[in-house]
Design a protein around this nucleic acid. Structure first.
Length: 290
DNA sequence: AGTATTTGACCCCC
DNA sequence: GGGGGTCAAATACT
């Protein structure tokens, strides 16, 4: 089974990386960046292994939408029905994603989830207003994921997306699945700057890749993604040179709402979902495509 | 008619 | 008190 092989591969790689990290920890010449890179790769390997386990069989695979979300103070059916204007305590995890949107992708659907806009504010010092989105299924399934969309001042083609909370709706659990059917309309490509690609085997992950990488913000106890991945229109000139015919299928991402195979992993709850994928190490995507 | 978006008001936190 | 996040009525869209 390919899944088993990949699982073994990831676990083995995790072990190897751990050994490397140990060597670096004992080495006075090792840089902090290198160690951090190894840490992230280790985490990535184990994340992937966990994901493979998680999705390898129906008995254990499907997380239930009603499964508790640790950072919410109380369950939906107790708290959420008491609608109040009181500011809710937000989850402690925030994901920052920077995407380059030149074709209006900054709407509610480009990341594989279905969002509903619930507000817009002019932010002090910001040229462009900030838009607030919540999961479409908030009231149906008690999914309290939200995101903030802010167009960059410096480069209006850059859309900064901040995710708050994680999806507990059923949509979250199917994000990892491949598209149910081929999309007919032209899809924008998801391009990744891979200037500092570490190793080719990092591309071996069979079913998914991140929209952006995650880093842990210790100050705020938050997970933050690093601004590394851009959306480009299909006609865009940029195309990562490493993409092979095989991998381009993975990277040619459908960014419409329901069948993006890639933009997922994401923001769901448990540790296994904090996937810092292989290409997310420091320097892995070292610059943003403009 | 049902759903999504807009937008002014409200409220909390710093 | 001001800024930012959310609510909800009004409006637009399908």
């Amino acid at each position: 089974m390919e899944g088993e092989w990949t699982l073994m591969h990831e676990l083995t790689q995790g072990m190897e990386l751990t050994k490397q990290l140990r060597l670096h920890l004992n080495s006075s010449t090792s840089s902090a960046e290198t160690r951090e890179f190894l840490v992230q790769r280790i985490q990535s390997s184990f994340d992937k292994a966990l994901l493979i386990l998680k999705w390898s069989g129906p008995a254990v695979a499907q997380p239930q939408p009603e499964s508790p979300v640790s950072f919410y103070a109380s369950p939906w059916n107790e708290d959420q029905k008491h609608v109040s204007k009181k500011r809710k305590i937000l989850p402690k995890r925030t994901d920052h994603v920077t995407v380059c949107s030149e074709n209006g992708l900054e709407g509610s659907m480009e990341d594989g989830y279905s969002w509903r806009k619930y507000g817009q504010k002019d932010i002090l010092g910001m040229k462009y207003p900030r838009s607030y989105y919540r999961c479409t299924y908030r009231h149906i399934q008690g999914c309290w994921a939200t995101k903030l969309v802010q167009r960059s001042d410096e480069d209006p083609s850059i859309i900064e997306v901040t995710y708050k909370g994680s999806h507990t709706c059923s949509q979250a659990s199917r994000q990892i699945l491949p598209p149910a059917s081929p999309e007919k309309k032209q899809q924008p490509n998801l391009s990744v700057d891979t200037e500092d690609l570490g190793s080719k085997d990092m591309m071996s992950f069979p079913f998914s890749f991140p929209l952006a990488s995650f880093a842990y913000d210790e100050n705020e106890s938050q997970f933050c993604t690093q601004p590394m991945v851009d959306f480009r229109d299909c006609t865009g000139s940029y195309s990562p040179s490493f993409i092979s015919p095989a991998t381009s299928e993975i990277f040619s991402a459908n960014t419409s709402a329901t069948n993006s195979p890639i933009l997922d992993l994401d923001f769901s709850t448990d540790a296994a979902d904090f996937c810092s994928f292989p290409f997310d190490g420091p320097g892995f995507f070292s610059s943003r495509i403009q």
